[in-house]
Simulated assay, not measured.
Amino acid sequence: MYDIDITVTVDAVGKWQATGRHAGALDTTQREGWDFLMEMDPHFSIVFPGEDRGGITVRVVEAEDGTLTLMEAPDWDGSVSVTFDLT
């Protein structure tokens, strides 16, 4: 789990866009974990305070400056193929 501060805007046809940042600076271990998850699969489930664990599936893109762009991923089927090199 990572706390993200996000700003959501909705256009005239109801499509939303969101940008954000980590709520707090990530320590070394958290950064390594975040980078690992992003490399493995950049799809996450957003859960808003007070809601159950369902949430919205989004694809996250992180810019060089740490800004996160969140895009709804309704077509994501929840599967991913990952290859690890553990040498």
Rank of each mutant, 00 (worst) to 15 (best):
G33C: 00
T83W: 06
M1E: 14
A63I: 05
A63G: 09
W34K: 03
H22D: 05
Y2R: 07
S81F: 12
R31D: 02
A73H: 07
A73L: 06
A12E: 15
W34Y: 10
V80E: 11
F44Q: 02
W34L: 02
A12H: 13
D52A: 13
W34E: 00
M1F: 10
Q30N: 02
T7D: 12
E62G: 04
T67Y: 06
Q30A: 14
F44V: 02
K15I: 11
D27R: 07
D3N: 13
D35W: 00
V8H: 06
E32I: 00
D85S: 11
L68N: 06
V80W: 11
V82K: 07
S81D: 13
D27N: 15
P74C: 07
F44Y: 08
T7Q: 15
V13Q: 14
M1C: 11
D65V: 05
I6P: 00
R31E: 04
V61K: 15
D65M: 09
D75R: 10
L86G: 05
L86D: 13
A73N: 05
D52N: 13
T57H: 08
H22R: 10
G20C: 06
G54D: 14
D27Q: 03
D77P: 01
E51D: 14
G78Q: 09
V8W: 06
V58N: 05
T7Y: 10
G20D: 04
W34H: 02
I4D: 04
D3K: 15
R31I: 00
E64D: 15
T83L: 12
V80P: 00
I46H: 01
L86Q: 10
A12I: 12
T87P: 10
P42K: 02
V58G: 05
A63F: 04
G50N: 07
I4T: 05
P49G: 06
P49L: 08
V13K: 13
T57Y: 06
L70T: 03
A25G: 05
I46F: 08
H22M: 14
G14C: 04
D52G: 14
R21L: 02
D77Y: 01
P42S: 09
E51G: 03
D41A: 10
R21W: 03
D27Y: 03
A23Q: 12
G33Q: 10
T69Y: 08
G33V: 00
G78H: 09
H22N: 11
A12T: 13
G14R: 06
D65L: 08
T19L: 03
D75P: 00
T83Y: 09
M1S: 15
G20W: 02
G14H: 07
A25L: 10
V8C: 04
K15C: 04
G20V: 03
T9Q: 13
E64G: 07
A18I: 02
F36H: 11
T87G: 15
S45N: 05
P42V: 01
E62N: 08
I6K: 09
R53I: 08
A12C: 07
T87N: 14
L68M: 12
K15M: 11
W34I: 01
A12F: 08
I6C: 11
T9K: 13
G78T: 07
T57I: 15
T9F: 06
V10S: 12
P49F: 05
A18F: 03
V47W: 03
E64M: 12
T29P: 00
F84E: 11
I6H: 09
L26Y: 06
T7L: 13
D5C: 10
W34D: 01
M71T: 15
D3H: 13
P49V: 02
M1K: 14
D5L: 14
